[in-house]
Each structure stands twice: as C-alpha cells, then as structure tokens.
Design a protein around this nucleic acid. Sequence first.
DNA 1: ACCGGTCGTGAATCGGGCA
DNA 2: TTGCCCGATTCACGACCGG
Lengths: 396, 396
Amino acid sequence: MGTLRTGAAGAASRISVSRTGRSASAPRTGLKAPSSVLPFLPLNEILLGDCIANLEKLPAESVDVVFADPPYNLQLEQALTRPDHSLVDAVDDDWDKFASFSDYDAFTRAWLSAVRRVMKKNATLWVIGSYHNIFRVGAALQDLDFWVLNDIVWRKANPMPNFRGRRFTNAHETMIWASKSAEAKNYTFHYEALKAANEDVQMRSDWFIPICTGEERLKDEAGRKVHPTQKPEALLARVLLSSSNPGDVVLDPFFGSGTTGAVAKKLGRNFIGLERDPVYAKAARARIDAAEPLSDVSIAAPPEKRAEARVPFLSLVEGGHVAAGETLVDERRRFKATVRADGTLALGAIIGSIHKIGALTQGLPACNGWTFWHVERQGKLVCIDEFRAKVRALSA
Amino acid sequence: MGTLRTGAAGAASRISVSRTGRSASAPRTGLKAPSSVLPFLPLNEILLGDCIANLEKLPAESVDVVFADPPYNLQLEQALTRPDHSLVDAVDDDWDKFASFSDYDAFTRAWLSAVRRVMKKNATLWVIGSYHNIFRVGAALQDLDFWVLNDIVWRKANPMPNFRGRRFTNAHETMIWASKSAEAKNYTFHYEALKAANEDVQMRSDWFIPICTGEERLKDEAGRKVHPTQKPEALLARVLLSSSNPGDVVLDPFFGSGTTGAVAKKLGRNFIGLERDPVYAKAARARIDAAEPLSDVSIAAPPEKRAEARVPFLSLVEGGHVAAGETLVDERRRFKATVRADGTLALGAIIGSIHKIGALTQGLPACNGWTFWHVERQGKLVCIDEFRAKVRALSA
DNA sequence: ACCGGTCGTGAATCGGGCA
DNA sequence: TTGCCCGATTCACGACCGG
C-alpha cells in the first residue's frame, strides 16, 4: 500500500497507490477492519486500485456528491465501418466487458453499495449511462434504497450518426440523479441559480451539450485519445453547480481522464478520484494540476450555446399546422405536391423531403422547401416557414 | 366471456368483454387450453378484462408492433399543491398502486412475457415510462431477451413545472424500442422516410412533441379529463410511422383512452386494444369510431431502397445501356475497367463484379459499383446507377 | 489574416439472401 | 448452419492546408 496524502487542489502531482483490495493478499474479514480505514479524507487525490476496495477504506458518511461514469457494458459483436469504409474506433476495452447481465448487475450492486456507505446523509449521487446499462443501474439503485430525484438527458449536439440506417441516431445519454434515501430531503439543489442561468425559467431535465472534442480532449504523445469516453467539462460543470457547494467533497469512483476532478478544481470543490488504470490516473493528475481555479464571480452556469433548432417538417404535420393529405403549392401556384402523414411530400409516385420535391418540380438541383411551399388558409397563401417559426417559438 | 368479433375499423361501437382471466372462476391449467385461444385475431377491437389473461388468448406470433404504456408506479406520498395552493390533480388511481418494487417487477415480467409470445419474429415493442418505472421495465425486458434498439426521449414542449423548486423540471419521458430478440434483424424501420421528414438528416433519439391538451384531450360530460395520462397522437403517429406498415397489427396491452387505436385507424393500421377499465374502454371506442382514416396517398408505405428489386449488371449489357468492351471510369477518371459480355469487369487480367473491381482499384475492402462506375455519353460522365433505375422502371 | 475545401472522428449493442 | 457476396449506409465539429 502506498502513501496516502491529503493536499490542496493545485499542489504537486500526487497519485496514491493503494492496492489492498480484492486482488491483494490481505484477507477481507467482512466489515472493514479499523486499520484499513483512512485516518483522514484523501482530498484532491487519485487513489489507484480497485474501486470497491478503496471505497471501503473511506470513512462512512464523508462525501457530499458522487459522480459515477461506470462501464456501459456495450455488447459489440462485429467491427463497424463508415460509409467511406473507414473503421469506427469503438470502445472495446477489457474494462467494459462482462460475461452476462447477471455479472454486470453484481458489479453494479457492489459499487453502489460501497458508494452509498460513504455518502453523507443528504449527499446525492449522479450516474451516467446509455440504454445498454442505465436500466440495470437504475433498478439496482432503487433496490438499494436510493431515491431517484430526476433522470437527466444529455442531448449531444454532435453525436455519431447511425451508419447503417437501421435505427434512430443514438443522440443522448442518460444521467440518474438520486438522493441517499427517500427520507433525505435536505440535499443541495441550486434552484434559483439554475433558473437565473436559464433565462429565468426552471432548468429542465434535458440538457443540450456538445461532446468532448478539440482542445479539451486529452491526447497522448502520439496524438491518440487517452480515454475512449472522456466526458465534456460543461456536463460536469452543470452537475456540480446544481448539486454541490464550494468546498464540498465530490467523489468519482470511475475517475478515468479526470473530468470530474478538473471541473471540481475549477469550481472550488474538493474531489476524491478512484481509478484502476495507472495510465488514466497519470493523465488525469497532470490535467488537474494544469487546471486553474476560477474566480468566484465566474462560477456560474455557462450559457447554452445553441444554433437555431432544426425543425422537422414532420413536426408541422404532428402539430396540426399542415394536414396529411393537404396540397402544398408554390407562391405562383405553378407546382403542387401532397403532404404525407410521415412528413414527406408526394409528387405522383415520387416521395421525398420538402426540399427534394421542391427542387424536383422546378428542375433545379436544390430548393429551400421552407420558403418555396405554401398552403391556402382563408383564401390566401401562407408560407410554411411561418408555421416553422411557431414551432420554434414553442421550443425556445 | 362475452362475444368476440372481428370487424373493420370504423364500424359500430364494439367492446368485447372477456373476463376469464386471473380473477375469474375458470382455473388456469398452465398453457392455454385450445378452447381459450381465439380462432381469429380480434382486429380493431378492445378486449375488456385482465391484460395477461387476454394476451394468453391471442395466437402466438400474430402482431407486428406493440405499444405499451404500463402503470408508472408513481410513488406519491402526499398531495401536491401549486404555489397558489391549488391542488394538482395527480395520478392516484388504484391501477397505479403497487406494494413494492418487487410486486411491480413481477407484474412487469408477466405482461412482457405474455406480450413477447404474441409478437411475430420481427415485431418490435415500444414501452413508455418515466424514471419511476422505466429502469425496472428496461432491465426486465433485457432479462427476457428482448433486444434494445433505441431509447427514445420524448421532450415535452409544455411539461408541468416543478412547483416546489426542489428538482429539475421533469420535462421528458422515455420510450424503449426493442426487437423480440437480438437475432431478429429484419424489423420494420422507415429510415428513408424519417430522414426525409427531418430536413434530410437522420431522425435522432430525442423527439420534441407537445403534451396532449386542448381539443385532443378526452373529457367526460362534466368536463373532467377521462384518463390521467392520455398520450398525444403525435407521439403515437411517429412511433407507428417509423416502425410499422399500413395493414399491420398494432397491439396495445394498456389501451387506456385509446390513442394507439385512434392513430392506428387514421394511419391505416389495425389495432388490438386490451383494457381493464370499462369506462376507459367505452371512451376509447367512441373516440376511435369518430376518427377518420387518412387518404391512401398520405399513408402508403414509403419506398425503401433496400427493398428494391435486384438488377444484375448483366441486364445493362443485355439491354444495350452499356456495351461489352466499353470502358467504365470513376467520377474523377482515375480508375478504369472494361465491360465483358458476361456482365463482369476486367481490370487487366483480373475479372470480377462491378463491386469487386471497384474495391480493388481503390484498395478498399468494399465498394458499391453501381454508384462508383460511370460511362461517357455525349462528352459527359453518366453513372451506371441511372441505367439500373431505367431497367427497374421497365420491370415495374 | 481570412476563406474554403478536405479530412478525421465520436460510449455503436448498426444485413440479407442465396447456395 | 455456414459461407459468400451483393450493395446499402454519416452528422457536426475541429484541425489542417492551400490560396
């Protein structure tokens, strides 16, 4: 077991090696032996080793917030190529492989139980996942008497497309936010600050945030990504700003590239990171050491950068602005097409988007269907772009 | 047991009473006795009674899509009031009460199993829920060997605010879309149509749709809402348009106010509704009878590239579109190959299909020869896929 | 410095038909 | 059941490069 030290954020690089866990020689005699409990909290440290073993060494009821990004248990069976035949660099790391759902469930229950013990009475837990694992995680934490407060949808601005055209674009991940128990009602939640940061309306459960790319993405000397699933700092910032206070202790049992630690430091929170892979831990330590705490005044929720929302023509049909079966015409009534229930247009037997059919009728290579097509309302032609504006106003 | 009838959509009001289920006197002797299996599918009917008992009377592998909106198991502990002290009309119906998670899980596994039996091999299942129940539903269906294709987030345009200011506004619900098994890959998914309806980009997993209000919301004589959780027709429309075809059989085991049936009728699908509450069933029947099917052109199944007839390249040679001995080139004239009389290409001494030779010239593992190769016609390059389209048009 | 075109890439459970 | 092969399939960003 290595030396464990406590230190302030921003001090010299420290990674504590502590390998007395499941794979070590020391026999585990049920509940933690006094000697194995740390005498103080290893604040702003990364503990190297088995996550559960290290959790068992932390004192009970000692952390304020937990953010956990566990393995998703993706079950990939074959290689995936893009339409240009380039290979998708998928998550195929050993740490994401489980023999069965049952194995994954056992793993999930074990770490959730260990985490729950170190949570203060009014602490809350965040877990992120995808449809591969989030249902199992959610059921497990409910079984362990956590109390779900919200599920939060991280809507990705730039998700990977579905290359085979066999499903909807998997454009989001899900976070579960839960308190330690149904009775713990005095958890931290900065309702007013979030509302103020969100144009004075309540912060919703769906967050639109870009994935981690560019400068923010950690790369090794060879320019390869250090970690396959590095989370964006904007996501962690909103999590910590909403559910923790400056000076709080934030625990991340699957520390990875250290996004939680970097954001905690920037926002004046303390962190405890648990990580099994020394390569990840080293990169995270360097990243956190390079991060600068922000001034108090700048610790506010970042404004949501958003281009004008794309509106599917289907939404106009769904919203009743345009009826299925109705006829669209151009401004001079030279061309017409029929609206289909699925949000496409029919020109005889040809079916396509408002843009494609608009182009086709005119014999042009392209056409903006929003400004080209009109419907008759009370004897006058109304451009469908007016309806788009209404739908946009709803979603703003 | 009441009379069960089959009838076309739009006929006189029919609700079939069938109460031989769990609460009835007839003993259940394991697998369904022949006499209890319906001799035909009760199309466009609402079967009144216990959902599982009625499912067991349907023939195996008989439905194309399932949409299920099961009880959410909301765990409300106290009445909720708005800031002005008015009372929120929350879901507190008996059908939403379960003694424990374990009871809810048993219920979930029972109906999911019964549903799975009546699904055709390539049928898919949709289940909608919130954070109260969706994790348990998701884990259960994975345990039963359903294969999750997507989780879809219904982002509500106008969700109920969080009156206490203690959580994020719960602004979405989650739908799980799953196939019957991982092996069933030929499920219905109208990729092309959805893309055309969405600005010619893939439809994402997050859908922005208003909740059901106004005219669409069913009210009783006293003006009270008939059902506490009526789903918007726009939601069901997108579900059915994406994953079913006209004429398909859509099963809804928790029929409620009949949104699934009303949308199915409008879109030219058949439905089977199971509902335990006669008040809901009666309201749903009236609603569906009043619904009008849309015109054929607006609901006909969209064309799919995958389903188009296969054309041998040899047909282009035989049809005189491309001559034996002629030279094919790629769009930038970097590569060329010679057409042989037998419909293969020659690249020096190498002979192979248009795809194989196309891949070979580029050094790629694969290539779509139809879009890769061109011939010169009147000084301009013409893609051979245009000739394929002509041959297809001829044979249609 | 700016602009436009090209290229790389991200937590992915991503065929079907015929022999 | 296996194997082969046809042939269908990508969006938003950021980096980089050439003019």
